[in-house]
Nucleic acid binder design. Structure first.
Lengths: 136, 136, 136, 136
DNA sequence: GTGGTCTAGACCACA
DNA sequence: GTGGTCTAGACCACA
């Protein structure tokens, strides 16, 4: 359903997985107590090595977002939603801030940046809606 | 004068340097024929290992943006401005698009993203102006 | 100098490494700011795969015991000593408690256990002293 | 009656079951010819998957401690008592030795270890007596 | 030289 | 079927 990974976007693959899981928990697409897709499923779906998925799950577990039930799978912790919500905002804001800073330093004015953002939001918004529809 | 590097922003340091040089050329802050700061100066200014700067200069040279004058230093090529202008737009747009896509996929609406962008532009704009003034 | 690993003692190898590093920090054999042996050195010294060492270092980093200096190595955090001291006691006590519980449940009396402990301490004490001397 | 399992004590669950059966035989809590509790009973009592119990029984059978009577259940072999007694001592001593070695290597003195052992024996001893009473 | 990331694949414990 | 651990080895960024 919902995870995707871009090997060339500068963020480590395992970190992209970590972020998307947190986002899904914040969004309640993934609910406390719910089983994550298995390592094997995820690694196939993302076309990524199982160990890379495992690395992401280790990180999530060490942050107390997920919990392992031996032989059953990995579930979302009861108290993960709040933590994920708080992190979601700062993760997104940090990344946006980095991109915007770069644009301003590159000599664009704030207005030029706003225009660029609007263009992109319009085109992206359409794409993402259609992706969501596809997966329905 | 104008370069800065953020080791934790997901983009390799040498790539950040490459981008900033291209941006400066596109902006005419750095003009064809002009000498770049030396590897030593740059590495000190950025608090970065000289090899990392060298790596960036190799990249710029292989893309035909800069040229080495033996015993003198590294200069911007005559025909680099156009190429840098074209690249600037796509580099910034790609990075913004990646950040915006992530925000939309994380469940924010286009309007929420626009609000976030505005907040950040306002705060960043102030900071960057004051940085520019400092370096004047 | 000081790390050793027993692949067959029921505790995962990476966890044994984690514990020994914490113990060394608690003991001040390893001091804040000091570089750990490199992954390659440790993996050779312990006759263990480098990835296993890396796994241990990830754990230590996620607990805030160590910190990575890119290209330089891994150092002990300034505030790690207290945390390691507190953990050392509980790690040792937990493990001892498990072994002692097992002995009592197996039908030994408290006195029999004490005798067994004394025998072992006497023989072990000698061995460990001689190991320390060897490495001097 | 007497078995208990700790999923987080570093020893595989099936191995904990094997050990406790051997201990019970050594103690004559479980006598030659006597039927063990059924796989279902044991797995319920220990809150463990039946396959894990089965795995333990396979191990016991392959060591000649128990024997299967088709349609009746699993009984203790006639000659198991001596073997279990011999093993009990070495199992307990090995595990204690490992825990004590770790404590000494972690920098505790033999006296500090003895004190720790005494504290624990006192508190454990009480607990285990009360458990035994409960199950009477 | 340093650690970080990723792939490929083995074997184990548990359900 | 599930995840956990470990090995072996590649390639990258940075010092």
């Amino acid at each position: 359903m919902f995870f995707s990974v871009d090997p060339s976007n500068g963020v480590a693959i395992y970190a992209q997985i970590v972020r998307q899981v947190k986002f899904a928990v914040a969004e309640k697409t993934l609910r406390p107590g719910q089983l994550l897709p298995s390592v094997r499923q995820l690694s196939q779906q993302l076309a990524v090595n199982p160990n890379t998925v495992t690395r992401a799950l280790q990180e999530l577990q060490s942050e107390g977002i997920t919990e392992t039930l031996r032989g059953r799978g990995v579930i979302v912790c009861q108290d993960a939603v709040d933590r994920c919500r708080r992190q979601r905002h700062s993760i997104l804001a940090d990344r946006l801030a980095a991109a915007l800073t770069e644009a301003l330093q590159a000599g664009l004015s704030a207005d030029e940046v706003r225009t660029l953002v609007d263009q992109q939001l319009n085109s992206l918004d359409g794409q993402i809606e259609s992706i969501s529809e596809l997966s329905t």
